[in-house]
Amino acid sequence: MGKTASDLGSESGARIPSVEAILKDELTRGDRALRSVPPVLSHMLASSGQSLVSDAIVARLRGMLASLSTQLLAAKDPARKAEADNAELDLLSDRLASDSVVLSYCYAMAMEGHLAEKFEQRSSIDPILSPLLQELIASDNAATAELAMNTLAAQSRFVQSQRRMDLPLAELPAELFHAILKRWEAHDRHDPAMAPAVKSLKAKYDEGASRIGLLARLVTAMRGGAIAALQLDHAGFALFASALSALGKQPRELAVLACHEHQAARLALSLRAAGLGSSAIKAQFELLHPAERLPSEIEAIAPERASILLNNSNARDAG
Rank of each mutant, 00 (worst) to 15 (best):
K3H: 14
T4P: 08
A5C: 14
D7A: 13
R15D: 00
I16H: 03
E20T: 12
I22N: 03
E26T: 09
L27C: 08
R32W: 09
P38N: 06
P39M: 05
V40Q: 01
L41H: 01
S42K: 15
H43S: 11
G49H: 00
S51R: 04
S54I: 10
A56Q: 12
V58M: 08
A59D: 04
R60T: 02
L61E: 04
G63M: 07
L65M: 04
S67E: 01
Q71I: 09
L72M: 06
A74D: 07
K76Q: 08
P78A: 04
P78T: 00
P78R: 06
K81R: 12
D85F: 15
N86A: 14
E88H: 14
D90E: 13
D90R: 14
D90W: 11
L92K: 00
D94K: 12
R95Y: 12
L96M: 11
S98L: 12
V101E: 03
V102S: 01
L103K: 02
A108D: 02
G113T: 08
G113S: 13
L115V: 01
K118G: 03
S123I: 10
S123K: 15
D126H: 14
P131E: 00
L132N: 02
L133H: 06
Q134D: 05
L136D: 02
L136T: 03
A138Y: 07
D140S: 15
A143Q: 15
T144F: 11
T144G: 03
A145L: 11
N150G: 15
T151Q: 00
L152S: 03
Q155T: 09
S156K: 15
F158C: 07
L167I: 04
E171G: 05
E171L: 13
L172V: 07
L172M: 06
A174S: 09
E175T: 12
E175S: 13
E175G: 09
A179D: 00
I180V: 07
I180H: 04
R183Y: 09
E185P: 12
H187K: 15
R189G: 01
R189I: 15
R189S: 10
H190P: 10
H190I: 10
A197I: 09
A197G: 07
K199N: 07
A203K: 10
E207F: 12
L214I: 05
L215E: 00
A221K: 05
M222A: 04
M222S: 01
I227W: 06
I227K: 09
L230V: 03
D233P: 11
D233G: 15
H234G: 07
H234R: 15
A235R: 00
A235Y: 03
F237H: 05
F237A: 00
L239F: 02
F240K: 03
A241D: 00
A241P: 05
L254P: 06
L254V: 01
A255E: 04
C259F: 08
H260S: 11
E261N: 13
E261W: 15
H262F: 13
A268T: 06
L269T: 00
R272L: 06
K282D: 07
K282C: 10
A283F: 03
A283Y: 04
F285E: 02
P290Y: 00
P290M: 07
P290D: 00
P295G: 04
E299I: 14
R305Y: 01
S307Y: 07
I308P: 08
L309R: 03
L309D: 04
L310F: 03
S313Y: 08
S313E: 01
N314E: 13
R316W: 08
R316T: 01
R316Y: 07
D317V: 10
D317N: 13
A318M: 09
A318P: 08
